[in-house]
Nucleic acid binder design. Structure first.
Lengths: 340, 340
DNA sequence: CCTCAAAATGTAAACGTTTAGATTTTTTTG
DNA sequence: CAAAAAAATCTAAACGTTTACATTTTGAGG
């Protein structure tokens, strides 16, 4: 366990200069076969692994991108991450992931840490869409791609799904099934997904001339707990909704738990559609209808956008991808029950 | 977007030497108040952020640990990760995560990359328990903690749950409910969890004098697909089992899907217990009985062990943590149906 | 066997920190 | 107020790469 071998050690052992070793390591050619073999053998023998730190210092690039998500336990993000990693690996980029727990303060620390480490770019679902705390990245000229939530104060590429449209279609579907008392469990309205999903809801009601009833608009925070709580509140209304729309996967889970506990019968007594597909969707009886997003693609696109920006240092205009989500109708939404 | 400011720029602006700036950055004291303030102002003004690369190069430490998991989409790992991150943050360590997709080849690449980056330690659930490809870490003197799967050829700290005991209890429970035709969907037997869970099954049958029936031992690969496939095979037996034990979460999901599709009625026609709690467990009707693990704790312990080793460079003996899983009986296992 | 171009290899500087040890400044003390 | 001690600050080297440029080696052609 001597101190790690350096390029110098390799050079000594192979009886060449460090420049030659460097050439071999980086496959730059212009080295005689025999020399190369001698060097390779020395590397093998010493167990030499080059130091990324030293390399970065000279080259000012790390071939690394940083990914920041608000909650690693929300399955949406690992899925997106898988898409990112896949594309990144193809381009020989390396990915580092950190989770903020929805805390802008932790997010800022992470950003700073990423900058210290010299990431070449960042993909982020920010905990605070205002984005003041992300100015640092801009200052350093580090490309950023926003995923799922946009960033107000930063001109960056963005990959979103059409939250409004997806929700609109879901609500429309419910309306066409005769529902008029449709509740929405909202996400935080200061986030893009939270707000846009609410706007889709609003729009659908408006288009179909259904008055928006404040009692049916209820505020969650994208967490499972809040889905549970909100559902309970809806249940306690003297005039219960006949359909519920939940704004994200975690709240859907809470909601379904509540329905179960309250013995509020899914499908028959209350129809349901949730944003984002969830594992449980097809296990429940009845199966859950959902607005599904192509999570893997979101990750892939995000990386591709970022990679473009990293390679073409030039100034590209801000780009925005808007993927269309898919309404998957299963059995949790039914014609409104005339008996109610 | 000039090139990034360095400590030298700060020093110039504040009219001091770089040594003094360094002292301020690292809170080493011995700097006059006024000087410190001048320096702080300069840092602020320039937006200076120190280069981790340069720092690492000098100090040979990164305050970073690497985490390697086989499948980031399996919710078990994000949960463990959350535990790791939490403790790591407390100790001012930073975490980088990579997923191997169960490929030892990718795993080796990742390891190499981690070493290049100079991680101070590694927490890993390896894709190949033989561990030959992990020798590199040992050579470099980088502490390693194995989680969930042990590593044969490496003397490293290990955090496991008592897979055998957990499974034993589950099978025992089924036996005490009168089941004799109990099937197990195994994980790969060349992994600790796969093998130990099988051994627990075997042991329980033996202790209760039930002959092991090869037809009921069926080989999966921890993937959802295989859970589905295996369940189907069991269904096709002329003498179907009256109970099924699934060796992990993903296979449980596949299994439940299959039961549904086959219209093989959970609880009444076939009892079920799965290893690892899953989101869907409490949504199903009947609710799934499971062997649950304290995932967050696993992560916390793993980090603590690693941290100890990083700080106390000395040679500690290999340590092994064996957490006890908890059998959660819900409604998916019932007294054997005498009608069958 | 000499010349010369091409190929291979070597030299040395630079990247941005930290820090031991040298030097300067400030404070204390008689 | 000078000398000594203490505190603050500075100088310079080192960390392990990459690479422009310099030097040496090789081999072809005469």
């Amino acid at each position: 366990m001597e101190s790690k071998p350096t390029i110098q050690d390799v050079a000594n052992l192979a009886n060449v200069s460090i420049a030659t070793v460097s050439r071999v390591i980086n496959n730059q050619g212009g080295v005689r076969k025999v020399t190369e073999e001698r060097i390779l053998k020395a590397i093998e023998e010493l167990g030499y692994i080059r130091s990324a730190a030293a390399r970065t210092m000279k080259l000012k690039e790390t071939n690394t991108i940083g990914v920041i998500v608000p909650d690693i336990k929300n399955p949406f993000f690992p899925q997106v991450m898988a898409g990112i990693e896949q594309k990144a690996r193809e381009k020989e980029y390396f990915t580092i992931l950190s989770s903020t727990n929805e805390s802008p303060k932790i997010e800022e620390e992470i950003v700073k840490n990423f900058i210290e480490r010299g990431v070449d770019g960042v993909i982020i679902t920010t905990a605070n869409e205002e984005g003041d705390h992300l100015k640092l990245l801009e200052d350093q000229g580090i490309p950023v791609v926003a995923v799922d939530r946009s960033i107000k104060k930063l001109e960056v590429d963005t990959v979103l799904v059409d939250n409004k449209k997806g929700t609109y279609q879901a609500i429309q579907h419910l309306i066409l099934q005769g529902h008029e008392k449709i509740a929405i469990i909202c996400g935080p309205l200061n986030t893009t997904p939270g707000l846009d999903r609410y706007l889709g809801y609003q729009q659908a009601l408006e288009d179909y001339k259904i008055a928006l009833d404040e009692r049916y608009v209820i505020q969650g925070d994208f967490g499972e707990q809040s889905g549970y709580r909100c559902t309970k509140k809806l249940f306690e209304l003297e005039e219960r909704p006949t359909a519920i729309f939940s704004s994200n996967n975690m709240m859907t889970i809470g909601c379904v738990k509540a329905l179960e506990d309250l013995n509020w019968r899914l499908g028959s007594e209350v129809s349901f559609i949730g944003f984002d597909d969830v594992d449980i969707a097809t296990f429940l009886n009845p199966k859950l209808s959902v607005v599904a997003r192509p999570m893997n693609s979101i990750g892939e696109i995000a990386f591709l956008l970022l990679h473009e920006r990293i390679s073409l240092k030039g100034h590209l205009p801000k780009r925005e991808y808007l993927l269309t989500p898919e309404l998957k109708i299963r059995q949790s939404c039914r014609l409104v029950n005339p008996a109610l």
